[in-house]
Design a protein around this nucleic acid. Structure first.
Lengths: 168, 168
DNA sequence: GCCAATTGGTCGGATATAAAACTATCTGCT
DNA sequence: AGCAGATAGTTTTATATCCGACCAATTGGC
């Protein structure tokens, strides 16, 4: 339908949902087809996009969600600890937290105790927002669970966790 | 050591390898601890960084590797198809491919057949580079396999693949 | 007390990525 | 032909992210 003989069908197979999505048919993935690293990447992208779609209505980038959850669960946490918990560099929190503060979702308090660090906590509005997002996330997780199957879910979780822990 | 009582140990536990890495101790992850999406993200980051370290010596960003592999396996592939296969937006390939072309690793040919699209292929230098990278990637995969265990590897691959396919 | 080393956070530069708008080309229908 | 609609790539704009350099506050040894 396009032109180059062996690749033509590639376009049409595999639901054309944006850039990420299913494997493209008619393409030889070579060793990639067997590599965990590549599949981790694709799965993460797919999951991320699905999550973004689920949260779509709520005006808050997906990345902020983990931050809100961690702050909500650990009031008084500092930026550095938060960055490690969320698996991101501490420097990336500066703009993200500034945004959350501007939206009045979190509180950043300098304490006399140690005036270098901030103690982060949720405002009431932040707690409300977190509840809404948690709801969306639960729907997303439900979808994922349906896909992997309730029986394999714990194993998948354990394997992913092992990778994170042992590669760290 | 730091200050806020319950969070103090968080910094020291869990090898302080950059931003990504193992779970931070002393932190309450709340529902995140059980969410596949979050763990997918962490595992992908960890894997990506480990891969980058493995490939470190070779002067080529990790992201380019999948592109080279796919082009090598599917000579004549177009940018749009390549972008789908690699799970990225087509617009992101423009700078990446320009770089690869500048390094003389790939060939971008306009064919008279359809002068909109390019037919991509590897140069001899590109093939050599691909072989070297494949070697590094194999080491990385070997590490991952050691971590997840040879027995669980196929299952993990299958589950990841299912997520990608069904979320697409 | 004072200075060196450490630690928390920010800034600037670089890369990666996506989404939308745009250009060039091709295809089909008339 | 000629024009509408589809398709391939590029550009523009906006984020997210990392890293290394930086500044401010703290701590420990003297």
């Amino acid at each position: 339908m396009t032109q180059s003989p062996p690749l033509a069908r590639a376009l049409n197979g595999a639901r054309s949902r944006k850039g990420a999505g299913a494997r493209v048919e008619g393409i030889d993935y070579g060793p990639l087809a067997q590599w965990l690293g590549f599949h981790l990447r694709l799965a993460q992208i797919a999951s991320f996009q699905a999550f973004a779609a689920e949260v779509g209505e709520v005006d808050l980038p997906p990345g902020r969600f983990a931050l809100l959850t961690l702050i909500g669960r650990n009031p008084g946490i500092s930026q550095t600890v938060l960055s490690r918990a969320a698996g991101r560099d501490k420097s990336t929190l500066t703009p993200a937290l500034r945004d959350l503060r501007k939206r009045e979702l979190i509180l950043c308090q300098r304490l006399a105790r140690d005036r270098r660090s901030y103690h982060l906590s949720l405002t009431p509005a932040g707690q409300t927002m977190l509840r809404r997002l948690t709801h969306c996330a639960a729907r997303h997780e439900h979808n994922l669970e349906r896909i992997v199957g309730a029986r394999d879910r714990p194993k998948l979780l354990r394997l992913l966790n092992k990778i994170v822990t042992e590669l760290g």
